[in-house]
Nucleic acid binder design. Structure first.
Lengths: 302, 302
DNA sequence: AGCTCTGTTGCCCGAAACGCAACGGCCACC
DNA sequence: GGTGGCCGTTGCGTTTCGGGCAACAGAGCT
């Protein structure tokens, strides 16, 4: 909206750390930008930036102002979304930060289902680890986060919380694929392992559990890409560890849950930033997501 | 602030109910205003006003937008106030809606004390009954309300709540002024009464209590002005009923609490609008007010 | 010293906001 | 059933404001 053009300039200068870089991103000249900043500082009666040799940095007043600007912009989005909803067709945008494990099946399915109902709603899906996901929420870069093992944070407001039991993943034909029930971890460790690396929460969870009982882990292959690990599993008799919700339906793949005596289930949550009102589109998508997870948890019990 | 000029136009048209009246209040021409409204409606992709023969009225989308505009303006005030506070001197403004009983002594005292510490802070004090006070909060015309017998309202967020025992008020020399302890209501009813009229919560409280026990009330003088009643009490041997906090220190006046078996104490609260963040100035004034009331309640117990 | 990065300023232009005057519609009152 | 008053709206001229261009001043680095 037009009226917060000048305020968004402030936010961009704060982001970029310099007038010239911000001006470039905003497609205006540094001179125009400098004047806008000066006008606002004059109106407030106080500077909001420190002028350093290598750029601009927010001072305390600026921090307060920028926070207000971001809040304000997010709230306006929400209002526009509500207004659009009044006219019947839902428009809007949903920004989701999620762990890698969910982009294989769950998120695409849910986005597709949602967009089938509301084609006018756009999506931004970013893959982030659990720490980055919280940061994305706090920076208003994401409306919702869908992550494993959420870090304890007061800014996080859970909309759903559930358990995911880690599964041993192997190809059909692998010795472990003979059975379908739970498998003990020690039975996995005798095979070659293809594990997520330490950039993923799954690995931290595994390492933590093994460290407590002094078991040594020597993985044959490590990767930050779950998709790569699955593709490797299809080609060799290696065993990977992944969460069931991230394992695609593939007749060539077989998975068995790890006995919970060996590995505690991981926590999985849908969350938003505490204190923030979601747009209609984001709120309804969260509803859909939570409904699916509840339905799924129910069917797994039954 | 400049950037919400066009938005404040919308709010003013909503308030005034017509472009021409709003234009006059804003010191611009109707043509300029009409264009601004059209621009905003174009940006939103939907009208926000119904055009009636006798003016403009908000539609549903407009209601949402205007609420956002008011929220946003109030939040900006709060941020400006916080920023001003950073520089040491506190600036800002406090808008208070209070019952008539408090303008005699308490509010002027507190405003004076506050302004002695922070001369740059301005005040707006409006006298409102308990219903109007809540309305003033909801319309963002007041930051704080100080009222008796608050109506139950989900929008009201109490910052302090206490009891005020009604007092019989008479001049020194009046037969009832011989004693200082509690007085029974029936002892008052034998004298000529000068009571608040039904525009004041005190009267509703009295009527309610008397109706329950079938006592008939015949007041000699009624008035909507507590100050007038006090001046009358000074000139005649009449008895008035007022709350102690509203009775000025005057050696010619004598007051005795009504026995609580006859009249339950009235509730008195300091409140803000639920969900709203107060400016620094208003928050600190509320703190001061609450501190005084707590101190006072404590000393009355001791 | 010189080079490069920063923010800032003077001057000019184009777009956006505004004021003035006039137009067309609706309602009430005569 | 005119008719006056109030309403929102529009065409046009004027002013104001945002923006681009080029040049300048200061700080850090080589």
């Amino acid at each position: 909206m037009k009226h917060l053009r000048s305020l968004s300039y402030v936010a961009e200068v704060a982001r970029s750390g310099s007038i010239r870089r911000a001006a470039e991103r905003l497609n205006i000249t540094p001179s125009a930008l400098t004047r806008q900043i000066q006008d606002i500082e004059y109106e407030l009666g106080t500077p909001i930036f420190e002028r350093l040799a290598h750029g601009m940095r927010l001072n305390a007043a600026g921090e307060l102002l920028v926070r207000h600007i971001r809040d304000q912009a997010a709230d306006l989005d929400r209002v526009r979304s509500q207004i659009a909803d009044l006219s019947g067709v839902r428009r809007g945008h949903v920004a989701l930060a999620c762990s890698q494990a969910f982009v294989t099946q769950m998120v695409p399915e849910e986005v597709e289902a949602y967009r089938a109902r509301f084609p006018q709603v756009g999506f931004t899906v970013q893959v982030r680890d659990h720490v980055q996901a919280v940061a994305a929420l706090a920076a208003f870069e994401a409306d919702l986060a869908l992550v494993l093992q959420p870090p304890p944070s007061a800014e996080l407001h859970p909309l759903y919380s559930g358990q995911q039991t880690l599964c041993a993943l192997m190809r059909v034909g692998h010795p472990l694929a003979m059975d379908t029930g739970p498998v003990r971890l020690r039975d996995c460790l005798v095979h070659a392992l293809a594990l997520p690396d330490r950039s993923l929460a799954i690995r931290h969870h595994i390492d933590h559990a093994l460290a407590r009982r002094g078991v040594e882990l020597h993985s044959t292959v490590e990767s930050g890409s779950l998709e790569f690990l699955r593709n490797l599993v299809l080609r060799e008799d290696v065993v990977s560890l992944q969460i069931p919700i991230g394992i695609p339906d593939d007749p060539r793949l077989h998975s068995r849950p790890i006995d919970t005596r060996d590995l505690a289930p991981m926590t999985m949550i849908v969350a938003q930033l505490r204190g923030r009102l979601l747009s209609v589109a984001a709120a309804k998508f969260a509803d859909q997501l939570v409904a699916r997870l509840n339905r799924q948890a129910l069917s797994e019990l039954g």
